[in-house]
Simulated assay, not measured.
Amino acid sequence: MTIAERAVLRAAVSDLNARSAAGDPAAFYGQQLLLSRIYALSTQLPEGPTAEGSTFVHEVLRLLEQATAAAEDAALEPGALDAAPTEPSAYLSWLKKSAREHRVYKHPYYREFIRDHATADDLRNYVIQESVVDGRFDDLLATMQVGTSGDAKMEIAENFWDEMGNGDPSQVHTHLFNQIFRVFDIPAQELERSLTANALLSGNLAVLLCRYRHLYPEAVGFLGMTEWLAPERFVHVVHAWERLGLPDVGIVYHKLHITVDSRHAAGWFHNVVVPAATSERMRRAIARGTLWRLNSSARYLDERMPDLATHRPV
Rank of each mutant, 00 (worst) to 15 (best):
R100P: 01
P25F: 00
L123F: 04
E158T: 13
I258A: 14
D139T: 12
I186G: 13
F184V: 10
L92T: 08
Q145S: 14
I258N: 11
P313S: 07
S297T: 13
A69Y: 01
Q145E: 14
A40V: 04
G250F: 05
F56T: 06
L229E: 06
N204A: 08
R263W: 10
R243T: 03
L63K: 01
N166M: 13
E101W: 05
D15P: 01
V8H: 02
Q179P: 04
M154S: 10
S36N: 13
P217V: 08
A74L: 06
G289D: 13
V183K: 03
L195P: 04
A80S: 14
L16K: 00
W292Y: 15
G53A: 04
V60R: 02
K96W: 09
W268C: 11
A84M: 13
K96S: 05
N125L: 07
L16P: 01
A276P: 09
N125P: 00
F177M: 08
L291V: 04
L92I: 03
R111D: 09
R281A: 15
T68V: 06
W161G: 12
I258V: 02
T50E: 08
V220W: 03
A74M: 05
R100Y: 03
Y110A: 10
L61R: 09
G165Q: 14
E303C: 03
R283H: 08
Q31G: 06
A188E: 07
V238G: 09
E280F: 06
A51V: 02
H214I: 01
S279M: 07
R304C: 08
D307R: 15
L215H: 12
L123T: 00
L76Y: 07
A26S: 05
A276H: 13
M1E: 00
L291F: 02
G79T: 10
R136F: 07
V146P: 03
R284F: 11
T148K: 04
S262W: 06
A90Q: 14
V104W: 11
V8E: 00
A67Q: 01
A27T: 01
A265V: 08
Y109K: 10
G48D: 13
